[in-house]
Design a binder for these strands. Sequence first.
DNA 1: AAACTGACTAATA
DNA 2: CTATTAGCCAGTT
Length: 115
Amino acid sequence: MTRGRTVTRGDFFERVYAVVRRIPRGRVATYGQVAALLGHPRAARTVGWALRALSEGSDVPWHRVINGSGRISTNGRDHEASLQAQRLRRESVPVPAGGRIPIERFGWRPRVRGP
DNA sequence: AAACTGACTAATA
DNA sequence: CTATTAGCCAGTT
């Protein structure tokens, strides 16, 4: 098969998952950051959409993705939001109630290439 | 093919 | 600091 067209939902989602899977434990990345790594700095919303489409049993650490303000943006899904906060805290990432996660310290910094 | 949707962001007020 | 607005992108209908 010259191309795995088995993917009906578009390869973009899979690329998003591939990137998110690389976020190390104890670190967080923003939607915009993931989008930028995919080569589409403006597709942050699409990244969020891809994560929303994940199943519960997924091996994708979606909880390590937050918005650019350092806050959890499950946009209404309070249940998911608390789960995300819980998982992050378990990885030693501080999630202040009503506060923001210090991305300066816990943000993931993928190195483009080893120097 | 056109319109709509949304786990975003940056710019304004 | 919060609230509103407009722009963006891929998938869905």
